[in-house]
């Protein structure tokens, strides 16, 4: 049995009417008529009344479940402000426009918010989440977390987005190499190899050592040289503005 609950509130000469249609078992065509003595000011989307709203009220097909409707009018409140004139089951029509949105609908409509795959640095698995998160917020969490903090740039000297993923990859490899180098006991070595992703991965890390070091040093030199030149060049804004 469909029921219509109405509440009204009056602000600055405008009556706001809130309606809830409850307990719809299936798609139903409903007609809700305004009984207040004034024009219906319907909800608008892009400047046009939302689908289903007319001068007298709302008419349209709504899906099963509960639905909220609302409109405004300059007329004073009265009881009841609106009535449900008609509710006919319309099982073969979609409750288009007023159906409650599922989570999947929202994602379909607005787009997947997950960061793109290219933004995620290679070699960083989702399971490292807790560790790295602790590393950022709890500098005293442990040696592993501390090294993460040291290699990861903090918010105030932020590294440009284009460089960040590559630096992250480098940081991950350096960390892996350090862990492997520090492993002195058999259990520690086993754990380090497992963490690195197996013996093949350990070999890759070992082979890439010289190249990585060369690239990082070259980047540091170039960045330092550019920083010096940028620091020395002062743009004479005032002078240029005067002569322009």
């Amino acid at each position: 049995m469909v029921t219509l609950d109405c509440t009204t509130s009056h602000h600055d000469g405008v009556t706001l009417v809130a309606l809830s249609l409850r307990d719809l078992d299936e798609s139903t065509r409903v007609t809700v008529r305004n009984r207040l003595d004034g024009p219906v000011w319907p909800p608008r989307c892009e400047g046009l009344p939302v689908t289903g709203w007319t001068e007298t009220g709302f008419e349209g097909v709504v899906g099963p479940g509960d639905h909220a409707l609302g409109y405004a009018t300059p007329a004073p409140p009265a009881d009841p402000p609106a009535v449900l004139d008609d509710a006919t089951p319309a099982p073969n029509t979609d409750g288009a426009g007023v159906s409650p949105e599922s989570a999947a609908d929202v994602v379909r409509e607005l787009g997947d918010p997950s960061p793109p795959a290219d933004a995620v640095p290679a070699g960083v698995a989702a399971t490292t989440d807790a560790d790295s998160c602790d590393g950022v917020t709890e500098p005293d969490a442990g040696p592993a977390a501390r090294s993460t903090t040291a290699t990861r740039p903090q918010t105030d000297g932020r590294v440009p987005a284009a460089v960040e993923p590559w630096l992250e990859t480098m940081a991950a490899r350096v960390e892996a190499a350090e862990t492997l180098a520090d492993a002195e006991t058999l259990p520690a070595a086993t754990a380090a190899v497992r963490e690195a992703g197996g013996l093949a991965e350990v070999r890759t890390i070992a082979e890439s050592g010289a190249t990585d070091e060369r690239r990082l040093r070259r980047l540091a030199l170039r960045a330092a040289a550019l920083a010096d030149r940028r620091g020395a060049a002062t743009v004479p804004v005032e002078t240029l503005a005067r002569i322009a």
Partner: peptide, 20 residues
């Protein structure tokens, strides 16, 4: 209820589970 800090974690998460 805090959220993880990594992009890898964000990518592994199913956003539709947020409503539940």
């Amino acid at each position: 209820v805090p959220c993880g800090r990594t992009l890898a974690g964000a990518r592994a998460a199913d956003p539709t589970a947020l409503t539940d």
